[in-house]
Amino acid sequence: MALLEIRDLCVDYLMQEGSVHAVDHVSLTLEEGSSLGLVGESGSGKSTLGMAILRLLPEKTARVTGSAVFQGEELLTMPESRLRQVRWQELAAVFQKSMNALSPVHRIGSQMADVYRLHHPEADKAACRARVLEVLRQVDLAERVYKLYPHELSGGMMQRVSIALSLINHPRLVIFDEATTALDVITQGQILKEIQRLEKDLGLTRMMITHDISVVATSCTHVAVLYAGRLMEVGPAASVLRSPAHPYTAGLMAAFPSLTGEKKPLQGIPGFLPDLTQTIPGCVFAPRCPYATEACRTAQPPLESIEPGWQAACHHRLREVNNHG
């Protein structure tokens, strides 16, 4: 059984002028021990998807429908009391702005100990402290970080603190929401390596939300490409990134420089995200797609299998074009 099974997840942000369809019928499966990179440009709904699974969206302004079954339990309708148990013991997260991830006027160690004690009420002071020091060591931080304040650390160190905090209660699944975006490439590379090492040691499953396709290429087993709230392509990272089946995936990759390959001029994707308050009948990417035909504008392409575990939603899949040509 999959660790996390998302089916037809929709998130609408309710506003006075109408609702924004931020996530539109997305289905994803996360196998135990795998790592899924969720990529897309700003506004594609990738962070919204993560926050919806974590149940952190404001209930008044965000309507979430569909299902997200985690270890056999439905997350979206789970009662508050059960949710509080699942949170951080089984499902943890590392957030975008790690500099603000902890309270500025409390010591880092005491905040982390607070979170540990939450799920281990029997633990005494020494046990909490020991556990905090243990996870700090796991992310290569010195013991003295325990008694420091967040502003006394660099961005990279705070990112490690955030990762250490996410590990403190031995979760099964960790969602990284743009967790390395604010870091320089060197620090990002180090942290990605550490994350992969921890994953192996601790048997973690990971969902990595990022706009940086190179992060997915270096650190994820699977990739899901999101555009305007809809799933464009999903499959094993190696296959998808080697020869993408969806024109949007290909466009995203052409917009990133290759470190090892030949030097080619970078190509952007012309145009902007569509207006998400409108219901779009055809493919959401059609207005920007070089292959779009009339069919793309009228009928929404379904997700179709290319290989087992690899699907793309496109009427003109590049993979097939490649195969035939």
């Binding site: 951080w88 603000n100 905090l165």
Partner: peptide, 20 residues
């Protein structure tokens, strides 16, 4: 942001309010 962090850890609103 840190309030969201604590909420995600399963800390109750009451505890978040009083402690942080």
């Amino acid at each position: 942001d840190y309030i969201i962090t604590f909420r995600a850890t399963g800390m109750s609103e009451k505890t978040i309010f009083r402690r942080y």
